[in-house]
Simulated scan of single mutants.
Amino acid sequence: MNSRRDFLQKITASAIAFTVFPHTGVAGKEATERPYDGPVLRVAIMGLGSYGTRVAEAMQSCKKAKLVGVISGTPSKIKDWQQKYNIPEKNCYNYENFDKIKDNPDIDAVYVITPNALHHPQVIRVAKAGKHVICEKPMALNAKEGQEMVGACKKANVKLLVGYRMHFEPHTLEVIRMRNAGEFGKILFFQGLCGFRIGDPTQWRLNRQLAGGGSLMDIGIYALNGARYMIGEDPVWVTAQETKTDHQKFKEGVDETIQFQLGFPGGAVASCLSTYSMNNLDKFFLNGEKGFAEMQPSTGYGPIKGRTNKGELKQPIVVHQTLQMEEMAGIILEGKQPVVPVDGEEGVRDLKVMDAIYEAAKSGKKIALKL
């Protein structure tokens, strides 16, 4: 096993078979018993790599969202997807001509699943074409880019959502419910550990021009975003330290390991670790005056497991991407409001904190935040 990703892919394959979460509309046995006849979000996926494939597979179980188009720079992938998912030729585009989706009434939204550095220009082009956008996280390389993307989508009167799949995950939402109900009392501390040993040194995630950084831009955003939704506040300061043991693999500007600390207005503090050099790191811990919540795995593709001071969490096991696309279809088509936001502004808040983490790691100073 070369990385946590390989392990998670194997787990998810088996998890898909028994996934069901009826009350949110995720397809399963319930879907065959009660045919859905409401509005359907017709989606084109941009970027047909491993995660794009995972999303496409998960969408086969959706009722409210349907894969209808593809955008890729690889003609052979387009042909394969056409055959596998019955995608018509008129809904297939490449990176040069996808602006033409403006004239295609059969596509409602584009899910951008490309390297981080491409998100900004591609999302803006999709918005100008008049289509709603779902963008993988991190939404951009920095907060300035993210804000420009939000502005472009507002100007075009289209929605911009970010691929925060954990914001819909049942165990996660149960912990948030318990916290909101005061069951943990005053929140004091959060710990987020996210990491794996990264493999191929030539992959885009280790290319600063494409990734915008290293582990923080890939896996660390889970701990950062998790600290915010688990504590239920936005941080007001950050400190950070970077550690690098392999300067050959992790070039200048590509972080191997970053530890960062966040301070929150209610007095809680968070201690987080993001790394590309250690496996077995996928854990959240939330501590309050009356109780605690521990999740491990906390953000992997599934199944999520957790416990609180009241016992084991026993929420339904779901395919995250299926549930995410169902709920995002509801947001776009029906104006649904999620418990935890997944809009562009949410993405910008994370980017502001990430900018500050890099600044703090470089300067050694505590950086004040105003989100």
Results as ranks from 00 to 15, higher is better:
306 G>R: 06
200 D>A: 06
309 N>F: 02
295 M>G: 04
65 A>Q: 05
106 D>Y: 01
108 D>K: 02
247 H>T: 11
91 N>A: 04
271 S>M: 11
336 K>N: 14
296 Q>G: 11
338 P>C: 02
260 F>E: 01
226 G>P: 12
256 E>V: 11
32 T>F: 10
321 Q>E: 12
21 F>W: 15
104 N>Y: 11
210 L>H: 06
92 C>P: 10
109 A>Q: 10
369 L>A: 05
289 E>V: 14
318 V>W: 04
13 A>D: 01
320 H>D: 13
234 D>K: 12
2 N>S: 14
288 G>E: 07
229 Y>D: 02
150 V>H: 04
80 D>H: 10
320 H>C: 09
253 G>Q: 09
7 F>Y: 14
321 Q>F: 08
152 A>P: 06
324 Q>P: 00
166 M>H: 04
78 I>E: 00
126 V>A: 13
265 P>F: 15
215 S>G: 02
232 G>Q: 00
332 I>Q: 05
166 M>R: 13
234 D>P: 06
335 G>V: 00
236 V>A: 07
312 E>M: 12
160 L>I: 08
64 K>D: 03
214 G>L: 06
91 N>T: 07
317 I>F: 04
255 D>T: 06
178 M>C: 12
322 T>V: 03
94 N>W: 01
271 S>N: 15
334 E>D: 07
77 K>C: 00
183 E>V: 05
300 G>A: 15
113 I>S: 12
145 E>C: 07
359 E>R: 14
196 F>A: 11
128 K>D: 06
280 N>H: 15
89 E>D: 12
111 Y>G: 01
129 A>M: 09
87 I>C: 02
15 A>I: 12
165 R>G: 07
186 K>M: 08
30 E>M: 08
252 E>Q: 06
228 R>E: 11
341 P>D: 01
333 L>T: 10
136 E>D: 14
179 R>W: 05
233 E>A: 05
133 V>N: 01
54 R>K: 09
187 I>P: 03
247 H>N: 13
318 V>L: 01
182 G>M: 03
284 F>I: 09
321 Q>T: 08
266 G>Y: 05
251 K>R: 10
348 V>E: 00
41 L>Q: 00
334 E>K: 14
283 K>A: 07
132 H>L: 01
284 F>W: 15
247 H>C: 00
